[in-house]
Nucleic acid binder design. Structure first.
Lengths: 336, 336
DNA sequence: AACGTTATCGGGAACGTTCCCGGAAATAGT
DNA sequence: ACTATTTCCGGGAACGTTCCCGATAACGTT
């Protein structure tokens, strides 16, 4: 697939490459007639500047890297939509990588991304990642990084999160106000920032309503496969006294719980009320319709990308980094 | 963010760039000691070859473009997973674009992709695309293209599809065998190849069981928003005699139907049986659990990417192109 | 007429890498 | 001791583009 270059145009028109280049960039020091000639010929030959050559010259790839746990997850695919919107609008393209919730793959992805010379990195950390040195080093070397949703307080940069504390607080309080007392909390990894915050919101709601905190009701889940979740659910149901509500911290966990409770023939919400932290598109069509704390995924992606591009395009490092806290929305349906 | 280059190494070690380059590529004509020296220094300085420079030299971007209608769709995100697996394994990276089921955006995406100088293109056409000249031209210019799922018979290249006819036939026959006679079919666009095939499968099943084909039961839907689908469903329900089953041709349509039927208080499957052509992860958790024809999305992505990379890496154009037909799986649940 | 201005263009280096070509030194072969 | 071969390395062009530095005319100014 041969593509026409500036040299081809120059040769065909008996001009120098500099002249052609300047004509194409509409430089003032080119004769309007020459300019016209070049432009027309370029149009005719369907000339497209080679972005690779430009990247080499400018030492800039016009690409940003995005690492998410998985794209087959409605929250992240929506976030990616937001990221792409801003990125494309500002002339960047997006390279998407998946960590699959694995620390090793995340490190490998980071490696790929630096090798690919992206101009910046947008990342939502895997829940198996407790050590963030791979990101810290990169950041100290000067690569612009913005964290979103799954952030870490060890990295000093812009962050975009949702109000996890408030969302969890509202969800828990809603369960309490509807008469629940033994509320189990299934969450992801204990070192994940968002998990900590949601747990804190959960505890604060309990405290406000004078319900004692019971550690046995908290489940940190390393894996997301339905078998693992089912085991956790079974163990929780064997507790005495039995829990009367589940509050889950993610898409996958909510779905897994729902599935397990169905299989175990537990009536929702009569026996167990269920509310999740999720962006499932079909949440209202589930059986029963799932109550959720909904996150503004698209907006998160948009603002995170915006911050990153600002970071990339500003020559000097900003003195202070901001953490943007977007509001969640609690949607009560049949499951609670 | 300054990165160390071959020149830096050469200068530091008092060697020429050629020597360093050859040492790094483990050339036989470099003294083992020198090689050792270079390798150690490169390792110490964390040298990474600049892929942009390589791309410029080799006139190869090591990137493939992927255009799908939307990634926030489980079928496509699974397919992308498959694509990425093969692509990364073979050293390519993946640039994802979304057409949002819009012809204009698809054309724009194609433009971006050629401007970005990808080595090949993987595409699942938007349902509003009736004219595929933008792809044809590209293909004739020599860009390797592989179509998957949403293919077009106007483009003569490798294709990866599922057995749409058989899947639709089985779904329809299943409805017939469970006593349904007035089976409505909601499908996407009339010029979409997969829509035609599924319609053909539907008709064949009717014919086999001597059920007359009624055109009024077929709905081509241009839009996927719930309002539009709801209107279609309402109109179908006003028919006389009323349909007793719906067979939908996509994720979105199945979900939309389910939603509309719920809102209209129609009992599923008592009044209307429902079966979809979808890869929804939560299909078994819906209310009622949704019967579906399931497509091997991940495998489709994998094989499509494999074919494309073979195409890219073979110097000569293959004489004949193949169409790979993967099998669907029908999963009967509560909705039918 | 001599000079400064302006308009218009070309030459060539640079970005990071590979690879062809050539060349010096060391070794082997007679 | 002389040539032939091997070993090891450097120079420089090339990929496509931009941009700095000149260069040549034509023009205007005194």
């Amino acid at each position: 697939m041969h593509t026409v270059t500036i040299k081809d145009i120059a040769k065909a028109l008996n001009l120098s490459t500099s002249t052609v280049s300047r004509a194409l960039r509409d430089s003032y020091e080119i004769n309007p007639e020459t300019k016209q000639l070049v432009l027309e010929y370029a149009e005719k030959m369907n000339y497209r500047p080679n972005p690779i050559a430009l990247s080499l010259r400018e030492n800039k790839s016009w690409a940003i890297g995005v690492i998410v746990p998985e794209i087959a997850n409605h929250f992240f695919s929506q976030a990616i939509n937001g990221i792409e919107e801003t990125a494309y609008k500002r002339g960047y393209h997006v390279m998407i990588f998946q960590s699959n919730e694995s620390y090793e793959r995340e490190v490998a992805n980071v490696g790929h991304i630096v090798a690919r010379r992206v101009d910046g990195l947008l990342i939502s950390i895997s829940n198996q990642t407790s050590d963030v040195n791979h990101l810290k080093e990169l950041h100290e070397q000067g690569l612009p990084i913005v964290l979103f949703d799954r952030v870490s307080d060890e990295i000093h940069t812009h962050k975009v999160v949702t109000d996890n504390f408030k969302g969890a607080f509202q969800a828990t309080e809603h369960l309490i106000l509807s008469g629940r007392r033994r509320i189990a909390h299934l969450t992801s990894s204990s070192f994940l920032y968002i998990a900590k915050e949601r747990l804190a919101g959960y505890r604060a709601a309990l405290e406000k309503h004078d319900i004692p905190f019971d550690e046995r009701l908290i489940y940190f889940s390393k894996a997301f496969d339905s078998e693992y979740v089912r085991n956790s659910v079974e163990e929780l149901l064997m507790l005495n006294p039995k829990p009367d509500a589940f509050f889950t911290a993610s898409d996958r966990l909510a779905l897994g719980c729902l599935e397990a409770l169905h299989e175990l023939n537990v009536k929702i919400p009569r026996e167990i009320a269920l509310i999740g932290f999720t962006n499932l598109r079909a949440a209202h069509l589930l059986s029963p319709a799932l109550s959720t704390v909904c996150q503004p995924a698209f907006d998160m992606g948009k603002t995170a990308a915006g911050l990153l591009l600002d970071l990339i395009e500003s020559k000097k490092k900003p003195i202070e980094f901001k953490t943007i806290n977007l509001q969640t929305e609690i949607v009560i349906r049949k499951s609670s």
